[in-house]
Every structure is written in structure tokens, then in C-alpha cells.
Computed example of a mutant assay.
Amino acid sequence: MSTLTLEATDILRWTVSLVWPFVRISAMLLVMPVFGARQINARVRLGLALLLAWMIAPQLPEAPAIDPLSVGGLVVAVEQVLIGISMGFVLTLVFSAINQAGEAIALSMGLGFASAVDPVGGVQVPMISQYLSIIATLIFLAMNGHLVLFELLLRSFETFPIGLDGPDNEDLWFIASFGSQMFAGAVLIALPAVASLLLINLAMGVVTRAAPQLNIFAVGFPITILAGFLIILLTLPSLTARIGDFLFTALPLIERVARI
């Protein structure tokens, strides 16, 4: 009867073939939208990362036989974390820009005090920001953005193999410059509502100047809230298109960061 013999090198090779993909995948799931939400239990994220790593490990190039407990293994682990965080952080910038646009609209409407916990970031944001974040999440899931991101992650192991090589300064600079693009995009989203509400506030100021006995707080506050909701309703088609453009702009940057 033949016996199965295992050597230390075989165990090390099987271990690193699963550990390194698990580190990169779990880092991306930690910061990416939807899966990185505070409402999702950490065990669920780790279980999903372990399942994905186990599924794609046979399809990946052979990883270098580096001991995970050595100094070289620590360097490789940090590089895998940076790659995963860089890929997920790009989409996080998109959702942060959308939250900033909603906050600007809410402040112009006078609803800056009405806040709730953002399911993506886990922080207090105005209700308008949460409304826009929900729309962005639905668009992201409707266009199968999570599946596209997983596909890019799988391809990144081929174009950005596991080894003593991580993101360089140019990759990090592209991510930083993308943040400025998202800030400009947030201004474009909020600009129609903010400009319209500014004109309404100027009109209310003229009315108050002409009739000082008019209680501006009793009249102007409901008007600005109602006008804000009407403006959001009228700009909803262009709003969804703008959010879709944000997501489509983020995917090529993820490909560039992953060197695909």
C-alpha cells in the first residue's frame, strides 16, 4: 500500500498559494463599497475572501516560496494589502464624492441637521447624502460593478503577480489626482440645486426687505425645503447619468492601478 508523504516545501507552497491571494482580496473587501459596509460582519467578509481565494488559487501563477512568517513574507503581505486597498479605495472615492454633493445640497436646503448613519462609511451624513448613496449603490449593483471588480481582481494576479513588487509612486499619484476629479464631479452634481436655492434665498431676502413684518423663518424654511426636493426630482435623470459616469471613470483607473 502506497503512503502519502508530505514535505515541508509542499506544505509551504500550498500555504502561500492561498495566503497571498487571501490577503489581497480581504484588503479590497475591507474598503470597497457594499462589501466594506459596517453592517456586514467581519466574519462574513473574511469568509468571502477565503472562498474567493480558494476558488482562484488554482488559476493563479505559482507564487514565490516565501515564508509568511519571515521578513520577506511580511513585505509581500504589506504589498498585497496596498494593492487590494488601492483597488477598493478608488470606488470609495466615488461614493465619498457623492456624499459630499449630497451634503452641499442638504446645507443649501436647510436639512444639514437631518442626518443618519451612512451604511457605506459608517459615519453620520445628511439624509440627502444617504439618498444619493443609495442610488449610487443600486446603480453599482445594477451594472454588475461588484462582478467587474472581482474580475479585475482576478486579472490583477496575472498582470501584477505576487512577489517583491508593489504599487509605485506613480500609481499612488493617479489615485490622489482621481480624488480631485471626484471633488470636481461632486461640485457638478450639487451645482444645479445649490445655484437654484441660492437664487431662492436671494428672492426671499428681497421679499423680507420689502415687507419686514414677514417672518422669513416661518415662510422661507418650508419654501427652500420644497424647492430643494423639486430640484432633486427634476435633476434625477442627469444625476443618475452623472453617478454612472463616475463609476465608469473609476474602473479604468482600477485597471491602471492593477496594471491590466
Rank of each mutant, 00 (worst) to 15 (best):
D171N: 07
P61Q: 11
L236M: 08
E170N: 01
W14D: 15
I231K: 00
G228D: 06
Q213R: 15
T3C: 04
L74M: 14
P61W: 10
L154S: 08
W173N: 03
A101C: 13
Q130H: 12
V125M: 06
M32A: 13
G220D: 05
S70W: 07
L164Q: 15
Q213Y: 10
A116V: 12
P33G: 06
P222N: 03
F246Y: 12
A53S: 14
L154Y: 04
L253A: 00
I98Y: 00
L233P: 00
L107Q: 14
V187R: 07
A27G: 09
L12I: 05
I216K: 08
F113Q: 14
L91C: 01
V125A: 13
V78I: 11
F89A: 12
A53V: 07
R209Y: 14
G122I: 07
P58A: 08
T3N: 08
F157K: 06
F183M: 09
M143T: 07
V94Q: 03
I98C: 02
I11C: 08
A227I: 11
V71G: 09
P33A: 11
Q130S: 09
I189R: 01
S86L: 02
F160W: 11
A77V: 12
L138I: 09
F229N: 06
T249N: 03
L214Q: 10
I11N: 11
N41R: 05
M32R: 05
L132V: 01
G166S: 04
L199S: 15
G112I: 07
G166R: 14
L107S: 11
A42Y: 05
L239M: 13
I40W: 09
F140V: 02
A97M: 04
L141N: 06
A106R: 13
I11S: 13
G185T: 02
R43L: 15
L226M: 12
L111Y: 06
A97S: 12
A49F: 04
I189D: 05
L198K: 02
A49V: 03
A190Y: 08
Y131F: 14
T15D: 14
I83T: 06
E7F: 14
F35V: 08
F140W: 09
V257C: 04
S26Q: 13
V34C: 08
S177Y: 01
M55W: 04
A27D: 02
R209N: 06
A97H: 03
L48Q: 07
L4F: 14
I200G: 04
V76C: 02
V75Q: 15
V257N: 01
T208V: 10
L253Q: 00
F160G: 02
F183D: 08
G72N: 12
L132K: 12
L214E: 11
M204S: 10
A101Y: 03
I139R: 13
A184G: 12
L214W: 03
W54K: 10
S26P: 02
V123L: 12
I85Q: 05
R24W: 09
L60F: 06
V76L: 12
S26T: 09
A97C: 06
S180H: 02
A106K: 12
G121W: 02
Q130L: 05
P161G: 08
L153E: 02
G36T: 08
S129I: 05
L138P: 04
Q181C: 01
L6M: 11
P21K: 05
T159M: 01
P68W: 04
W20T: 00
V76H: 00
D165C: 06
A37K: 01
L12M: 14
L6H: 07
L234A: 15
D171A: 15
A106P: 04
F157L: 11
Q181P: 00
E103H: 08
N169G: 13
Q181L: 05
L251N: 00
